[in-house]
Design a protein around this nucleic acid. Sequence first.
DNA 1: ATTCTAACATACACACTTGTTTGTATAGTT
DNA 2: AACTATACAAACAAGTGTGTATGTTAGAAT
Lengths: 217, 217
Amino acid sequence: MRRTKAEAEETRNSILHAAERVFYEKGVSNATLDDVAKAAGVTRGAIYWHFANKTDLFLELYNSVSLPLEDMIARDIEQPASGVLAFIEKLTVDWLDELASDEHRQRIFTILLRCSYGGDLMPVLERQQEVDDRHLASLESAFARARNEGHLNENWTPHSATRALWWMVGGLCTEWLLFGRRFDLAAEGRDGLKRLFASFRPATIDIEAPADVHSIA
Amino acid sequence: MRRTKAEAEETRNSILHAAERVFYEKGVSNATLDDVAKAAGVTRGAIYWHFANKTDLFLELYNSVSLPLEDMIARDIEQPASGVLAFIEKLTVDWLDELASDEHRQRIFTILLRCSYGGDLMPVLERQQEVDDRHLASLESAFARARNEGHLNENWTPHSATRALWWMVGGLCTEWLLFGRRFDLAAEGRDGLKRLFASFRPATIDIEAPADVHSIA
DNA sequence: ATTCTAACATACACACTTGTTTGTATAGTT
DNA sequence: AACTATACAAACAAGTGTGTATGTTAGAAT
């Protein structure tokens, strides 16, 4: 039953997709390789051909997800300094929108949130920490630039604003993913971010803006 | 080896404590009942005498943790309306302090965060959702009172303030617990909450306060 | 003092999962 | 056309955890 290379790559992908679904539904440690095999329409032999073992399959699945957030954040250096805060806000909102519409990424994140990281999954944890730390550093430097230009409210520091944003987005996504997506992630996130970023901005008296404060509601 | 009732209750508790440690270290599904038994200094027979199975043991462990947050929040109804925001802030800070100093609760929460909730653990998830919903409703009504008294900044609504606070605290604790407690939970939390609550308050011109803004830094 | 039973320990049977090994048909290679 | 490595399927071997059944001892009841 030797398949062509394209077909082999196809079965490898189908195994990865099946693993994503099965890991998401049953949890990584509760899922059996036979579950994955059946979901992919193959036998365990195929899995052991393409992957060394379950941990390796999980790592490959983790590697297969692209993390465009890094690129997005990296670009903020080149953005005009005047709108740093607006840029970060848009970036975050866009990221939430993408998560809300990408079931693939939803499942991956949920799997990562629910898995134990005990023993052989340590490299995943460490890589994730490292990525997070880079994101936090990027964000904090962006907030620092905003402050230096006088665009950051004095209530906040670059560090505290970074953490507040990070924790709020993290908490939002965690609750949404772990508790059955019981609300509109994009809408609630957009609203919360709008208000948080409003508090980030200095309390300037809106000189040029018309004073129709009530029209918002 | 028949023991007295007090001794039996003692072994039951030792089993619960061992389960807490073992579940925390190896994850619920990766932990063996024999691991728990050995950690408790008994055999699996003792566990099966006191508990029906692993799921039941986990549920009993979950039930054994007291959730004083409910009482704390319930009392806010009786607080003076003038300081609702300050009261909520203090409540949250106190709760963080308690979590930071109570390793028992840290382990329980970590276990809950890391476990899969697949299949037979559904009741736990549902109960937790229900508890969370009550907390959120309490918080939101408190914020509503603050707004009615004119103590809530117009940038925020009771709903959005509740969610922002909830998500920020949740994200804070989640990161702290899952990523190895790499920062000072109480200090960072207190600082972040201070700034968030500052943005909750209306931007009153501090008439009576001396204008030494720079002395803070 | 005897009996009963709570509170375990021990032993066993069973299912399940993993990893490996063997088989096999076919795509590519010469 | 023959050969070989590929891409799996199928069978096998071994370990592991669970649930239960049985054994044992000492507190408690009469």
